[in-house]
């Protein structure tokens, strides 16, 4: 429980910080959940980040909508509304316009599994490390790809991989 409270405080601090956003991004992609019952799914992420740095780390917050269909049942589907907040750090420049960064986030999701007649839902917490490769198209517009790995903090040992490609607009 102490771990949860700590993560909640971190999550809340950086979500609040994210309200003064420096950049906005939108990125569609694919999702893979470590469950045999679901096919690969889709993800759409809306993100914000701050220009302020704390010891080289920038806070940011994302909202992702994840959907997946059943692998064996046509009426089975999965919806995850994932809100995550965390810190990102610039690692190095591959080229003058290509930047590689790493982030570590805490996510809180509302997860719903449903069929035609049945459904179950609950809140699930995640820890999400990610790597992001950004290419600056102009001074304020960038193209990026993001690879995130989520590990659920319930007792299911579930993993979630998100691979997305998007645009980032900086103020």
């Amino acid at each position: 429980m102490k771990k949860y409270k700590f993560l909640l405080i971190v999550f809340s601090l950086f979500l609040a910080a994210g309200l003064e956003a420096y950049s906005f991004s939108v990125s569609p992609g694919i999702s893979i959940l470590s469950s045999k019952y679901f096919d690969n799914g889709r993800v759409l992420t809306l993100g914000t980040s701050l220009s302020k740095k704390y010891a080289g780390f920038s806070p940011g917050a994302d909202f992702s909508l994840i959907q997946a269909d059943g692998a064996y049942r046509e009426d089975l589907s999965l919806n995850i509304f994932l809100l995550k907040a965390g810190l990102s750090r610039h690692l190095f420049n591959l080229t003058p316009r290509n930047k590689l960064s790493f982030s570590f986030s805490y996510g809180l999701s509302q997860l719903r599994v449903k069929t035609k007649n049945g459904s179950e839902s609950s809140f699930v917490s995640w820890v999400i490390p990610a790597i992001k490769l950004k290419f600056d198209l102009t001074e304020s517009l960038g193209l990026f790809s993001d690879l995130s790995y989520g590990y659920s903090l319930d007792n299911s040992n579930s993993s979630l991989i998100l691979l997305s490609l998007g645009l980032q607009l900086s103020r």
């Binding site: 599994v113 179950e120 609950s122 809140f123 319930d154 299911s156």
Partner: peptide, 9 residues
């Protein structure tokens, strides 16, 4: 969040 559907799956 007690027991999630993920853990039951």
């Amino acid at each position: 969040s007690s027991e999630s559907p993920l853990s039951r799956l």
